[in-house]
Structure formats: C-alpha cells, structure tokens
Design a protein around this nucleic acid. Sequence first.
DNA 1: AATACAATAGACAAGAAGGTCTTTTAATCA
DNA 2: TGATTAAAAGACCTTCTTGTCTATTGTATT
Lengths: 114, 114
Amino acid sequence: MFKKETEYALRGLVYIQIQNQSGRNPGISEIASEIDTPPSFTAKILQRLVRMGFIESIKGKNGGYFFDPDKSELPLKNVVVAIEGDKIFTGCGFGLKHCDDENPCPLHGAYGPI
Amino acid sequence: MFKKETEYALRGLVYIQIQNQSGRNPGISEIASEIDTPPSFTAKILQRLVRMGFIESIKGKNGGYFFDPDKSELPLKNVVVAIEGDKIFTGCGFGLKHCDDENPCPLHGAYGPI
DNA sequence: AATACAATAGACAAGAAGGTCTTTTAATCA
DNA sequence: TGATTAAAAGACCTTCTTGTCTATTGTATT
C-alpha cells in the first residue's frame, strides 16, 4: 500500500500528537518501541519530517519531538505526498498516461473516492 | 500504487485479451510496444503469468500469448494478489496489525470499498 | 532437414527501499 | 565546567525492484 517509510511516519506522527496532548514530548526510543518500528530507521524518518517542517524537535535532556502548537492542523495527506509523491493520488492504477475523468480506465471509477 | 510488475502485467493481459477477441495471438514485441513497456522485462513478466497459469503461450512462428478459452474469466484481482500478495487488500494503510472492522484505524473506513 | 521465428531460462547489473551503526551537535543538570 | 542525555548527520550494508542480455528450446514454414 504505502512504503514502510510512509507507514512509520504516519504512525509516528499520530503517536507524537497523542503524547503532545498529554503535555509530553516523546523521544525516539519511546516512539519506536510504542509504534513497533526499527529505532534507527524511525529516527532517520523523523529527522526528515523535522527538516520538512512537519514537526519540531529539541535535543538533550527532556528533548523529543512535538508539533508546533501555532501551526494549523496537519492533514496526513500532506505527509503522504511529501514522502510518496502525488502520483499515488493523481496516477492511474494501470499506470496509463491517458487515464482521467474523460478517458477512464476500468479501475478509474473505483479509485475516485480515495 | 501497484508495482511496475503488476502494472505491466495488467496492461499486458488486457491487451492480449482484446487481441484474442479479434482472433489474434500477439507476441512479446508487439505487446511491449503497444502497452509501452520494456520488452525484455515484459517478457519475463508474461513468462511468470504463463507459469502461474493465467495465460497460455506457443513458441515459434505465429506463436504468442492467449487466454485459454475454456477457462472462466480471470478477475484482475487474482493477478494483483498473485504478484503483490494479499496484504494490499487485507493489510492496514497504517501497517497496523490490530486493525480490522472491529478495531478500525482512521483510514479503515475509507479503504473498505476497495 | 534447414531455416527462421518466437517464447523460455537464467545470469547479470543498476537503483531504490529498508535498515544499522558511529560520530557529532546541542540541551540540561549537578 | 563537566557529565549526561538525546537528536542530527552521514557512512555503510542488505534486499527488492526494475531492468538488460545471451543462450536455449520449441514451432512452423520452405
């Protein structure tokens, strides 16, 4: 379905969000253990999310990851597009170049909703 | 969305089916050129489809690929499952193990239809 | 039988995805 | 200030995906 990277990113973000709501900034080892992903790989993914501005982080003791409370809510779709590209939403299931609403392939109708 | 392999397989099967209906058994170079895929790679994929029993083939002059007319129609879903595995249909978009109808993740509702 | 044609088999290789590990940088606390 | 904690950076490795290429096997035509 999605790449592992996207999956882990989504799971991580959801976990961070939930913890933030309890006033906590979880760290990488907690996150990886709770969402059941490889710690180092997860760390790299979260780094990317920080660089892309989806979340913030602070180093050192009591450090961790958190959402900027000033920012508006983050649609998960943005994350998926940032990692997977938007072909996953705009592309054709058959990989056809000339598949659109006017020229639909057999799968087209089924995929519209998503 | 799907792997290239799956995409090419679906496109190839559809093309073969259409040609069969006109009484023709298209060969690999025609198929690859018409569905716009790399010939050698496409050949390998069609070989797999033959070995898996989805289509038949004959070698030599006037050879090519065709569907066994005695067999019942082939749901494309079977092809996708054969190549991608069934996680793509049964798995959770978040990669959660404990996501099902009773314990749905936020994406679950949206994916049910597919 | 010889030839030409076309699928099959399988070795090989480049690139992307998935994952580990070590070193560096920054924040806190004693 | 020094020790500790935790994120950042990046080198490195393995596996899977996406191909290419060559040799072989089988079929049909002449």
